[in-house]
Each structure stands twice: as structure tokens, then as C-alpha cells.
């Protein structure tokens, strides 16, 4: 099987769900171990055990709904997400996966997975849209400000990038154009896989520059839903 054959291959709903659960068990276990280093054993020991059960395929939908309940408890405990968008994406995936398991017919299962796929596309497109209509982003000033004074750069040395306006102007526009063009990749299975590869690279760079490691892992978990969606709707 050539690389092109692999890139053209889609996923069935069952394959997408299985793959998501496997990736999710790793991503949530990683988050939970980080929390356990801080305490909060009452929440994170059960969460870790549920990840192991889900990763090994025990209990069908039960570990998914167990993790959903723990995520709800976390929202209460921290009065919102602990880690912003990555916690929101964790909850979104668990909600859609849980509903896909509960669905009485294949139609409703597909609706749950489609909702996740559409939200994933929106996560890129809306981010691109809010930037492209903002004059600060158009001028490249916004990305300079991120490096100049925001709380995100992981070291003081990285703030020096604010002194390279041309580089940041190009990078800012590259991000905006990629995010806006992302939905077009749904038209072709190979284009989608390449776009997801670029998106993963984008999250990886955010993890390196801004310490957003949890975003990298959790966004990867939703990709199988989009690969299934593209195959189901556009192929």
C-alpha cells in the first residue's frame, strides 16, 4: 500500500470512535498525571483508572461517561476550565463520544460525531476569522504583542522575537490564512490529511513557544472524527 493509498483511506464510525478513545485515554492520562503531581487525588486517581479502562477497551461506554462526569466535577472544582480551550475540547469530545455510544440508531450516532467534526473545523475557521477582521492582526502587531508582554512565552528569551516584526508579520498571516482555508481541505481526503498534519505542526509550535502541550494532544484526539466525516459526506 502506497503513502497515497493511506492518505486516501477514510474511517468507519466505529473505527473513528475506537481510535478517538485510544488517543483520548493517553491525552487524559497525561493531564491527570500532571494534576496528581499537584494533589487532588480524589478526582485524578479515578480519572486515571477510567483512562486505563477506556484505553484497554473495557466497559464500552461506561468509562467514557465516567470521564465525562469527572470532567463536570473538574468544571465545578475550578469554577471553569483549568486549562482553557484544552479542557473545553476534552469535554466536547467526551460529550460527543458518550452520545455516539448512547445513540439509538446509526443516524444519531453520526449526528454526534458530525457535531464534533464541525466544531473541530470551526475551531480553526473562527480563530482565523476573528484575527483577519482585527486591524492589529492585519498589521502583525497582535503577534508582536503576544511575544512582547503576554503571559504565554515560556521563556524571557522568546520575547526577543517581538523585535523581528517582518518574521512575525509573515507568521501571523500564515496562521490566519491556514485557519481560514482549513474547511476547504474537506473537499479531498488527501488534502484533509495534509491539512491535519499542518494543524498538528501548528499545535506543536504553540506547545514549544507557549507551553500549550495539552492543546496538542487533545486536538489530535478529535482528528479521527473529521477523517470519518470527510469520508461520509464528501467521498
Amino acid at each position: 500500500m502506497s503513502v497515497l493509498d493511506v492518505l486516501q483511506k477514510g474511517l468507519t464510525a466505529a473505527q473513528a470512535m475506537g481510535l478517538m478513545q485510544l488517543l483520548l485515554s493517553f491525552a487524559i492520562a497525561q493531564q491527570s498525571l500532571e494534576h496528581l503531581a499537584r494533589g487532588d487525588r480524589m478526582i485524578y486517581v479515578p480519572r486515571l483508572l477510567l483512562c486505563v479502562a477506556m484505553g484497554l477497551g473495557f466497559g464500552g461506554a461506561w468509562p467514557v461517561w465516567g470521564l465525562w462526569l469527572v470532567s463536570l466535577a473538574m468544571l465545578w472544582r475550578y469554577q471553569g476550565p483549568y486549562n482553557g480551550g484544552s479542557d473545553k475540547m476534552t469535554m466536547l469530545i467526551l460529550s460527543c463520544l458518550g452520545l455516539a455510544h448512547l445513540a439509538p440508531t446509526p443516524f444519531w450516532q453520526e449526528m454526534a460525531l458530525s457535531y464534533l467534526a464541525v466544531q473541530l473545523v470551526l475551531s480553526y475557521f473562527v480563530s482565523g476569522w476573528v484575527k483577519v477582521v482585527n486591524p492589529e492582526w492585519q498589521r502583525g502587531e497582535a503577534l508582536r504583542d503576544v511575544f512582547r508582554f503576554s503571559a504565554y512565552p515560556v521563556s524571557e528569551g522568546l520575547r526577543d522575537l517581538a523585535d523581528r516584526p517582518r518574521f512575525l508579520f509573515v507568521m501571523g498571516w500564515a496562521v490566519i490564512l491556514f485557519e481560514l482555508a482549513f474547511p476547504l481541505s474537506l473537499l479531498d481526503p488527501v488534502a484533509l490529511k495534509l491539512a491535519l498534519l499542518c494543524a498538528a505542526g501548528f499545535h506543536f509550535s504553540n506547545a514549544c513557544f507557549f507551553g500549550l502541550n495539552r492543546f496538542f494532544w487533545i486536538w489530535l484526539c478529535a482528528y479521527p472524527a473529521l477523517i470519518w466525516f470527510q469520508d461520509r459526506i464528501f467521498s
Binding site: L75, S95, E136
Partner: peptide
């Protein structure tokens, strides 16, 4: 209160870095 915490996770706004707001230390 729980509902107001939960709803933004399943109907997210995805407005990452819309503006670079004043940053706390």
C-alpha cells in the same frame, strides 16, 4: 451555575487570541 460552566464547553466560541488583552502577572 453548573449549566453555565458546562454549556461553553459543548458550544465553544473558539476565539483564540481575538485580541491581545492586558496580561496579568
Amino acid at each position: 451555575r453548573l449549566l453555565t460552566l458546562f454549556l461553553p464547553t459543548v458550544i465553544p466560541s473558539w476565539r483564540f487570541f481575538k485580541t491581545v488583552a492586558p496580561s496579568p502577572r
